[in-house]
Design a protein around this nucleic acid. Sequence first.
DNA 1: TTGTATGCGTTATCAA
DNA 2: TTGATAACGCATACAA
Lengths: 340, 340
Amino acid sequence: MTIKEIAKLCGVSRGTVDRVLNNRGKVKPDTEALILQTIERLGYTKNIAGRALTVRRSAPTIGVIHSGRGNPFFADVVAGIRQAERELTDYGVTVELRELEGYDAQAQLTAIDELASHVSALVLHPINEPDIQGRVDRLLDEGIPTVTLNSDLEHCKRVCYVGSDYYTGGTTAAAIMNICTRGAAKLSVVAGVDTVLGHRQRLLGALDYLREHAPGIQIVGRVSAQDDAGLAYGRARELLDQHPETDTVFVVAAGVAEVCRAVIDAGRVRQARVFAFDNVPSTVEMMRRGLVEVVICQQPFRQGYEAVRAAFDTILLGQPKGERIIMENQIRILQNIYEK
Amino acid sequence: MTIKEIAKLCGVSRGTVDRVLNNRGKVKPDTEALILQTIERLGYTKNIAGRALTVRRSAPTIGVIHSGRGNPFFADVVAGIRQAERELTDYGVTVELRELEGYDAQAQLTAIDELASHVSALVLHPINEPDIQGRVDRLLDEGIPTVTLNSDLEHCKRVCYVGSDYYTGGTTAAAIMNICTRGAAKLSVVAGVDTVLGHRQRLLGALDYLREHAPGIQIVGRVSAQDDAGLAYGRARELLDQHPETDTVFVVAAGVAEVCRAVIDAGRVRQARVFAFDNVPSTVEMMRRGLVEVVICQQPFRQGYEAVRAAFDTILLGQPKGERIIMENQIRILQNIYEK
DNA sequence: TTGTATGCGTTATCAA
DNA sequence: TTGATAACGCATACAA
């Protein structure tokens, strides 16, 4: 089914069909109804090959905003973004990247405003606040669809979320702890930020699993490092001092290497094992040193890659492949961490 | 850079540039040299968007042959193949699938001959024999590129291999055994087929790892089930009878559920744990029953998907993204096995 | 040996 | 309100 065929069947020209398809107005209601009905009946969808050629002419820009500047996890995300950009050069696509530092909603709004003037779609690692939610809805009204990246945005009309399933990440981490400790451990938890949805869900998943499946794992201590590597060392030292029986540490967010350093400095290397998320270089180094045996990963490279592709699919066809593109949680040990 | 621009710069027509690009001959050597030089200098590559439109007109067929009919692992591979086919319908692509049973080189040659008459590219799960190797080379001479799937084909001009890194799969499995057994085990091995490269490499990887990193894991027994679920039960029973000290079983190829059944019937459920590859349904069932804790997976769905895409990329642009597309080995427990 | 015309499917522009 | 036409980049049939 092509526009041409639809046009012939309806006894109109391609231009008229095009006006109906893209809601440009200026079509007699009768004609429009006929065309819509024919389209419905024959199941017309835009052809990617043809569409690609015209999209190319418009040389669309995809804007990307994230709040992880300086964060090695986001270095991988950006590598995926760049890979997607390279693959899309033939389609005339350019990626414009804004890397912010820290979670400042106002700064994010400013970045959105800057990009909104000229991008065809937005990839956003969002701060989950009402101002941002409203802005994303307005963007869509202006014809700019938003894909959320790594973390979702509630109560708004983003077209797609690309990221991981944090709750399952938590259960997977807990199950691995259960296996590696043979079901018996004195566990101390270094939590993340309570207002960051992903951190909370991870912890929830882990606690749910432990309650249901690991009666022999006892939680002896808990502290938060606020997703801040700078805070992690001190908090972990306190934790280890206050709970000397600790033999297992579960790190929910950033600061894994710092927690490991605290374990080393506390002279507990052979006693306490660390379980954590993401294979960032400093964590891998601790894996080499034997402090961390297993990490749970959420495929940062693919997150960046798929988010840009989803944005492009939306430009190309009006919608992404799915409303949620979820990365599987990967269990990694030194043997299946592949260097790029 | 487009053909048009190249043509203008060289003072010739688009047709002439096209003849040079596609080696159709009938071009004066001087003109050809000039054009080739200009292309080289300006780094021309065919545009995907334009190419897609003409490829569509030729409605190419991609042939797929595998020898895993009835094998649940290949059911996932085929699901990936179908997914790729769906995504490529807009490009006019059809997939023609031949599912064979067992490793019969002659049957594979027949299937290749049938497809060779009308396909534009071939995806082949090959039997690694000289006859097949020679046939693949001749296919390329006829203009039909071959992508090998799941298992590679040596000494031939296949354009791309899509599959897993079996050696690393073996080291990963061994490392997981080491972690889960805390470095102490009496291990019995149920090997695969020695002439199947992947099985041999897996075992090699595992043995290398154990020798270097796991002095406390002692190999007490070894048998082969020939990648045949029908044989696995009996072989495993013998193994368990002959080596009653066995507390860990490592299954290299097919027959995981049958080995588990042997463990059950031998009354050794709480004593012996099973480590294996691939999350096929019968294995997952044994995970639910607690006999298998961890499996190493090689992403069958993605293998099928990526193989078809690689074949299409070759049709579209003359070559795939890379000469080897390697799936990562995934460590899976019940918590991160996602049902589709 | 080379150039020109036509078509693929979609969209923008201009004329009616 | 609608139709005709040109354009994107590539490929090919045909004319020169």
